[in-house]
Design a protein around this nucleic acid. Structure first.
Lengths: 155, 155
DNA sequence: AGGTCTGAGTTGGTTTTTCCAACTTATGTT
DNA sequence: AACATAAGTTGGAAAAACCAACTCAGACCT
């Protein structure tokens, strides 16, 4: 657990979120889960992650409420476990999409994009935009962070 | 450098982006830079990061084109270095905003939000939304990833 | 000229994570 | 009974992070 303090929950959302998904491999597991993968062996084979780390990450993602551990049984097999995204886990496609979009824009690969975000029904590509409450688009350069209610002295 | 391979640049944007900002502390340095911090001592004091790690991260962020190292001289001091976001670095406020928004929604603090994203001129709060090419909003659950041009077998 | 201060690091040694390969466990099949 | 398989565990090596102490180069003071 990279940034967690035992005495006090960190105030900053960035820190709190990175507590949950900032460890190595965590977001990649979530990304693969968003692609529909649910099993230990799928994550292991697709990501090439060491199995002890995978085991630890799955446990901490379950504990963080991002994955849910379920029992399944395949024809002629014993019971096994699978891992399914919760609503909070599915919410992380916001973060994944941001990483994809930044990578496409500022760190493109010579081979083009490996994945695109699309609307499920229509397969139309979608992008992330900053939007005000009255649905006005705001360019990225015109957006900044300000201290909110929970900021006491520093952020 | 967490995920980098020397023989081949990874195809997936998520992996490529995490190569650059996935190490511990990197995104927090960027976040503080977005708040206007530029100096070694500011990052050190605000983040509480070990100085050798800070030194290494600043160097790798410079190398990745996210920060730019500049010389400055204060009244009655010798020349020193400061670190300024490049355009690519400023683009990371997309990622920071996604982390903040996810944290607010799925992992809220009892003290409320420590920071809000706002439009610079008006201070109106902004949120990240998925949008199609013809400016239609798409709810998060209706968005998924699909393989793009650079995906050969797996993603 | 010598001593002190300050920002920005570097260095050496310890602790924590990650990695890797080999092993285990609980079934179900042959 | 022997073998196969998914889902892990375990032990030891390598890498990364952490911490405290130290350096370095100019500015400033006496």
């Amino acid at each position: 657990m990279p940034f967690k303090s035992l005495v006090e929950e960190p105030r900053c959302q960035v820190v709190r979120t990175l507590d949950v998904v900032g460890e190595k491999w965590s977001l990649l597991i979530v990304r693969n889960a968003l692609r529909g993968q649910t099993r230990f062996s799928e994550f292991r084979d697709q990501l090439g992650i060491p199995t002890d780390i995978l085991s630890a990450r799955l446990a901490s993602l379950v504990e963080a409420g991002i994955l849910e551990k379920r029992v399944y049984r395949e024809e002629g097999s014993r019971e096994r476990f699978s891992y399914h995204l919760t609503e909070a886990g599915r919410g992380l496609n916001l973060v994944i999409a941001a990483l994809i979009q930044w990578g496409d824009e500022y760190n493109p690969s010579q081979w083009g994009s490996a994945s695109r975000m699309v609307e499920v029904g229509t397969d139309q590509p979608v992008t992330l935009q900053f939007v005000t409450a009255d649905s006005q688009f705001v360019p990225l350069e015109e957006v900044t962070a300000r201290p909110g209610p929970a900021s006491v002295v520093a952020w």
